[in-house]
Amino acid sequence: MRMRSGAGGHRGTAGGEALMGFGMAAMAVPAAVFTPPPWAWPAYAVVFGAAAVPALWAARAGAHHIHHLVGAGAMVYMSVVMAGAPTHAHGQGGSGVPLLTGALLLYFAGYVLLTGVRLVPVAAMAGSGAGGGGSAGWGDRPELARACRLSMGIAMVAMLLTL
């Protein structure tokens, strides 16, 4: 829905977040359900590395783009770790750099808490309006974007915990 927004900046941000969300979903499939081929993990690293380039460029403009850069970097990190992990250890932990994994866990846990707190007032204000259908579509609603970002942050914490 956010990709259908009338504002070009919203569409671009939503596209980047959709890429991250689909990539996270693909990486989170348990090995008991589907074991990816060996080339999948380096491919994920390349895709998320490519996603980090526009985030790096846009990070000059604001803090939210820095978050995208950290997220893309975390996905590259997890892809590289999983590429080096033995096939039988997929999702079993015991790999990665503990200090870096811990730092990313702290960052995303803080992001989840902050985003959750920011979501509460927007949801309360959105329900307080009396009928007047504004011109903004569903894709332009700030609480939708925050809810999407919150769910992706929670998923990132879960993925880092299993690393």
Score class of each variant (00 low, 15 high):
79 S>C: 03
53 V>W: 14
17 E>Y: 11
84 G>A: 04
78 M>Q: 05
69 L>V: 01
58 A>Q: 14
80 V>I: 05
55 A>C: 05
41 W>N: 01
9 G>F: 10
42 P>C: 01
67 H>G: 13
68 H>M: 10
59 A>T: 04
34 F>R: 09
60 R>P: 00
58 A>C: 12
29 V>D: 00
64 H>D: 11
53 V>M: 13
84 G>C: 05
41 W>S: 03
80 V>R: 03
9 G>L: 11
65 H>F: 15
55 A>Y: 08
50 A>I: 05
78 M>G: 00
13 T>A: 14
46 V>K: 01
22 F>S: 14
42 P>H: 01
73 G>T: 02
59 A>C: 03
30 P>Y: 12
46 V>T: 05
71 G>A: 15
38 P>T: 07
72 A>Y: 02
58 A>M: 14
36 P>C: 00
23 G>Y: 08
32 A>N: 09
38 P>L: 07
37 P>C: 00
35 T>E: 12
22 F>V: 15
45 A>W: 01
40 A>T: 04
44 Y>A: 15
60 R>V: 06
19 L>P: 07
82 M>S: 14
15 G>A: 15
34 F>H: 12
16 G>H: 08
47 V>Q: 06
40 A>W: 03
86 P>N: 10
75 M>C: 04
88 H>A: 15
19 L>W: 10
31 A>F: 02
16 G>P: 02
17 E>P: 07
66 I>H: 09
30 P>A: 07
68 H>N: 07
89 A>M: 13
76 V>Q: 03
32 A>S: 14
84 G>Y: 02
26 A>E: 01
47 V>E: 09
32 A>F: 06
22 F>N: 06
88 H>W: 13
24 M>E: 05
